[in-house]
Design a protein around this nucleic acid. Structure first.
Lengths: 175, 175
DNA sequence: TTATTCATGTAATTTGTTACATGATTCT
DNA sequence: AGAATCATGTAACAAATTACATGAATAA
């Protein structure tokens, strides 16, 4: 997966691992995060496989390794784009907890939902900042993913609010 | 994660690895799948850590290893239930493709969306079957996760249909 | 001068997948 | 008789995470 995010990023222009990381945290982060130590090894593997090539340079006295996608890399990327999607599974920790929620009390459940709501709202506001932020060279599709993110978060917030409302109604009228 | 799904399953009653797998494919599968070879090693690790214990028996001439959650396992599970949720990231392959969709043609994009829609509809109908299927001992929370799944799929279908509609409108009126 | 950002990387570990291997029982 | 389901497991591999390690340049 990360491999294709990297190749995809390099179709947008040549860049360093650090820049790919930055692009991702400003855009793809909400649907695919990457941790510090992931990009460089993957980039190296891509280079070993001839999917990207690199040139080292010094910019402002800083060492930098700029990667460029090769023809082969572009081919592999485009092939992946047309490959059938892998089985769609939404690994969602919150749902696992809900599934087994008979093990906890009502108040703990409410606490859990509220925490999750706070988490989503935090993510949504970060997405909003990106959306409203300085217009970088973001194409229509990148805007579409941002919009998906916001719509998705809106769906989740509405869904949990609704559920909370139902839960409160079902407690027999306790204050 | 799988560890907690296993512990959670065992809070519903003692069962074998095979039964846990079956429960999961009838319920949690859409938000957390597991492949064949995953459950038994995890179960073994849980036993090594004293979170579960097992008894072997022969039922209908078939060898079976039934697991039971220990007090320690129950404690670990409940502790996890109250632990703050891990950062919520929705690893969503389709969005990565959309993000880089300027690399493909309009017709390929439509094909991609249609395939994904078909994928979601297939999942939705499987969920519907489970929902409508023989009422097993499913508690309110388990029903809630099923409902989430169906609502989520409905959201996705509506979202992609809407996007497709917009895409068609923006092609300058081509037939 | 000190913290932050820029910038790259390695090593150990975790987590899970894929594919394989086995074998009994029950349904058709 | 043969296919499907029940039932458990191993071994090799893949992917990514966490934590560590380094160091220069710049902003506070």
């Amino acid at each position: 997966m990360l491999e294709f995010i990297i190749l995809g990023s390099l179709t947008l222009g040549d860049m360093s691992g650090y820049e790919i990381k930055k692009i991702m945290s400003n855009s793809t982060a909400f649907f695919s995060n990457v941790s510090d130590g992931s990009i460089y090894p993957t980039l190296k593997r891509c280079e070993d496989n001839g999917l990207v090539c690199s040139r080292e340079l010094v910019e402002n006295g800083r060492f930098k390794k700029v990667y460029e996608i090769t023809e082969e890399g572009r081919r592999v990327f485009l092939e992946w784009m047309q490959t059938p999607l892998k089985p769609f599974i939404f690994r969602y920790e919150m749902l696992i907890r809900i599934f087994f929620a008979q093990n906890i009390s009502d108040s703990e459940l409410i606490k859990l939902i509220d925490r999750h709501l706070a988490q989503i709202m935090e993510l949504d506001s970060r997405l909003q900042e990106i959306e409203m932020g300085p217009a970088r060279n973001v194409d229509a599709f990148q805007k579409t993913t941002l919009r998906f993110g916001r719509d998705f978060y809106a769906f989740l917030i509405q869904w949990y609010e609704q559920w909370k409302y139902e839960l409160e109604g079902s407690d027999g009228g306790n204050s």
